[in-house]
Design a protein around this nucleic acid. Structure first.
Lengths: 244, 244
DNA sequence: CGGTCTCTTGAGCAGAGTCAATGAACGTGG
DNA sequence: CCACGTTCATTGACTCTGCTCAAGAGACCG
């Protein structure tokens, strides 16, 4: 176990965006035992079916959750950004129903589930913030069902780009319309239910249409209005205004 | 407000499948104010964007959650069966990110969110059960992302049929392989990201392949093994073994 | 008895997938 | 410093799954 006030502060900052925390709430979070660890790109944090004994807070870097079809096809069901709790579901569920893999290198904080659970059930202020975090996570999953089920290729990719942009800005990671989308085209395909080849063609039409600019994995939103219209993007499902 | 011990007992029974409840937990649930109401098929229980002041327990009948694309396409993101809490997310989120509509006629119990929230945060036993319920709900949403994103039409429909069968059995509503799937083919399409026409053809191939039998909305699973294989169905994501 | 909803089926189309080849970028070991 | 292997991105040619449009048949209801 490592002393790590900075990470505790990041956790507090995140939870405070979900619900107001009083000084006792903050103290309780600061008292949480935390094991800090670096992860390499594409390493697994949690594998499907595994029993989780720790709960992961993503301090730096990007990770995603994925599920596999028996046929071997992969679906990415969410992408987590710095400051996200990655597997609150393992707080109360016995086995993980999906794998969690690192998209990039990063650093995570692992918290024993018992301690985290005690906080969730014992401190209403923190519990409320955790509830909101978990419920927003579920809301994103529902939006992804809609994205993958009812939008065409351009809409899906555009929506992913919009969502990422807004989340990064809300987390204070990206400023303005320019950001790095740390995913290969194959991963974008796995997140949107498309093939890598088709993602490539789709990105091209978005670029040619003047909606985005690209430079490697760097994305620039050139025409936000048009992109959002194409995506049918509306930020309500992100529930960013909870703590207001 | 209506005295309704039977419904309180159903709520207790449901939560007890998620986590053990002691006698005080049960008493607290029994003390919950509950407004019982009948709903007609296709009426809205909650509309997207609305602020929820009550939390809905589905006592009888079926409802579904849906989201709309700006283009007007509909995606059903979940189907709730008798005994489900329909909108735990409204406990802590300000606005609903989706609509909830009745699939069939039924009866619901509405509980003021304040009372429900107090229980979630104040009674660890009940809170834990509610957490699990919400997390399982999110797990289903993730599986639906996979279903819609990475399975072909036959797999999607087969998966929906398997999921429904297992959930109905777990809830003690259906026995064996024969049950009513109270959805039109259009609704099945909206749940699986297909068109009604293609659902029709897909159901036909499942019938002709000897996997299911149909009689109106009555479904019979004739070859469960083959159907599950085709669907890539594995019940782990339903987390049915939590309270064991 | 007419109207509405749902299911069914046919014909033709198109959006996205498959297969395959090439090129660029990058890291590594000799 | 360079040759090589690997990973990604890109593009072309062709295929096919699922969509669109359309029409007819039952079932149910007021």
């Amino acid at each position: 176990m490592i002393e790590s006030t900075a990470i505790h502060q990041n956790m507090i900052a995140k939870l405070a965006t979900r619900s107001a925390l009083d000084s006792e709430d903050r103290a309780a979070i600061e008292a949480l035992p935390v094991y800090v660890r670096d992860v390499r790109a594409s390493s697994y944090l949690i594998e499907e079916g595994q029993q989780a004994t720790r709960c992961v807070f993503l301090n730096e870097g990007f990770v995603y959750r994925q599920k596999l079809t028996t046929h071997g096809a992969r679906q990415i069901v969410s992408v987590q950004i710095p400051g996200d709790f990655v597997d609150l579901q393992n707080l109360f569920l016995k086995r993980s129903d999906h794998s969690i893999q690192a998209l990039t290198g990063g650093t995570i904080a692992e918290i024993p589930v018992d301690a985290m659970r005690a906080l969730a059930l014992g401190r209403p202020g923190v519990g409320r913030a955790m509830w909101i975090d978990a419920l927003v996570d579920a809301s994103l999953a529902r939006e992804w069902v809609l994205n993958v089920g009812r939008r065409d290729a351009r809409g899906r990719v555009a929506h992913l780009i919009c969502e990422f942009s807004v989340r990064l800005q809300a987390a204070g990671i990206a400023e303005g319309v320019n950001y790095a989308l740390p995913m290969t085209q194959e991963q974008i395909g796995d997140a949107t239910g498309l093939t890598a080849v088709h993602v490539n063609r789709t990105l091209r039409t978005l670029t040619e249409g003047g909606m985005i600019g690209r430079n490697g994995q760097q994305i620039t939103i050139r025409d936000e209005k048009a992109l959002r219209t194409l995506a049918g993007f509306s930020a309500g499902y992100l529930h960013l205004d909870q703590a207001a």
